[in-house]
Deep mutational scan, measured.
Amino acid sequence: MSGNGNAAATAEENSPKMRVIRVGTRKSQLARIQTDSVVATLKASYPGLQFEIIAMSTTGDKILDTALSKIGEKSLFTKELEHALEKNEVDLVVHSLKDLPTVLPPGFTIGAICKRENPHDAVVFHPKFVGKTLETLPEKSVVGTSSLRRAAQLQRKFPHLEFRSIRGNLNTRLRKLDEQQEFSAIILATAGLQRMGWHNRVGQILHPEECMYAVGQGALGVEVRAKDQDILDLVGVLHDPETLLRCIAERAFLRHLEGGCSVPVAVHTAMKDGQLYLTGGVWSLDGSDSIQETMQATIHVPAQHEDGPEDDPQLVGITARNIPRGPQLAAQNLGISLANLLLSKGAKNILDVARQLNDAH
């Protein structure tokens, strides 16, 4: 009898209710805020589980004197976190989706994509230029951005401005803007500013005609071990179906173009009346040469937790077992079709030249 009692006690200790789920994140304040929001949602869904947040620095956090596009290494903000995932030191990792490459290392998958916040870019102005827009900034004003995508589009749109690289986390960039006289304004992701509670610093939100956004911008991705079915089931509740389908289309477009950090590629997606609209573009580094096109596809946005595919093969690095396969494939095909259209119009040449120029500098 006593033996059975011990077995029952052991089973209770090993039951999922007692389990601590370890969540990996970057150390920056924004990353911690984003991770806290994901953990809060998981806690609400699984009140019996405990969650421990483990923060670590990544290569991208450490190399702050070089433009991201020049470092010449993929997975700048993800490699150390993936290493911890691989060694079973954490069970899942919360990322900004735009930091996750469209091809993940073997053994990993994006197990959830959370509801997207505003994906557009924002302009934050130096205190002396508050009330201005990019259009009304004085001639030769210097605007800071760490992104080739932003610089290429904005140089084309605002030729009277000069664009220079600015690195560091959000706090560091804002301090550089406010305390030094080098920059009249800087460009940042609206979602990051909003998550930090800095709505009052948003001086201008850039519309798609001015600057399309990065693939996955404004959404959070939760990376897990691809074979860890328990954790895949656990994080599945975080999937937002519309965000998922938009981001599958965007990531398929980028992957098929073979774009990345070192080339200016941008997108804009919208879901309306059962249609998914995808606009994508590529630019030369100075913005003088560009190709942009829009395509659409009829896609039914499923309700969360309709029964999805059981075999769960990944699409552009994403596993969404609780979302039907048909809409996911339709979104992926839309991204591939748009990429093929741009490639047929000469996108590869623009991107190759951009890559060579970026590598040469």
Rank of each mutant, 00 (worst) to 15 (best):
I21F: 09
T25K: 05
Q29D: 12
D36R: 07
V39T: 08
T41I: 12
Y46T: 09
L49C: 00
I53S: 08
I53M: 09
I53W: 05
M56S: 14
S57V: 13
T59G: 07
K62I: 15
K62L: 06
G72H: 09
S75G: 12
L76Y: 07
T78M: 04
A84Y: 08
A84C: 07
E86V: 09
K87Q: 14
N88E: 08
V90F: 05
D91Y: 05
V94G: 04
L97T: 15
L97F: 10
D99C: 00
L100Y: 12
P101E: 08
P101M: 05
P101K: 00
T102H: 14
V103H: 00
L104A: 08
P105C: 05
P106I: 10
F108A: 00
I113C: 12
C114F: 08
N118G: 04
P119V: 09
A122T: 09
V123H: 03
V123T: 13
V124E: 04
K128A: 11
V130M: 09
G131H: 13
L137I: 14
E139L: 14
K140V: 10
V142Q: 06
V143L: 11
G144C: 08
A151H: 11
Q153P: 11
Q153I: 04
L154D: 05
Q155V: 10
R156N: 12
H160S: 10
R164P: 07
S165Q: 12
N169C: 05
N169P: 02
L170A: 08
T172F: 10
D178W: 06
I186Q: 12
L188R: 03
T190Q: 15
L193G: 13
L193P: 07
R195M: 02
M196I: 13
M196S: 05
M196Q: 15
G197L: 04
H199K: 14
H199D: 15
R201V: 10
R201Q: 09
R201C: 07
V202L: 12
G203F: 00
Q204Y: 08
Q204E: 09
I205Y: 15
E210R: 13
Y213K: 02
Q217K: 04
A219S: 08
L220V: 11
V224S: 15
D228W: 00
D233H: 13
G236A: 14
L238M: 15
T243Y: 00
T243N: 10
C247V: 09
R251Y: 02
L254S: 05
E258Y: 13
G259Q: 00
G259C: 09
P264Y: 01
A266D: 08
V267C: 14
V267Y: 00
V267A: 05
A270R: 13
A270Y: 05
K272W: 15
G281E: 15
I291M: 13
Q292E: 15
E293L: 06
T294G: 14
A297W: 11
T298W: 12
I299H: 09
A303R: 13
E306Y: 05
D307H: 15
P313K: 09
Q314L: 12
G317W: 12
G317S: 04
I318K: 15
R321K: 15
I323Q: 15
L329V: 15
A331G: 15
Q332M: 15
N333D: 00
S337I: 11
L341H: 06
S344E: 13
S344W: 02
S344T: 13
K345Q: 05
K345Y: 14
K345G: 05
G346C: 15
A347Q: 13
A347P: 15
I350P: 00
Q356L: 09
L357H: 15
D359N: 09
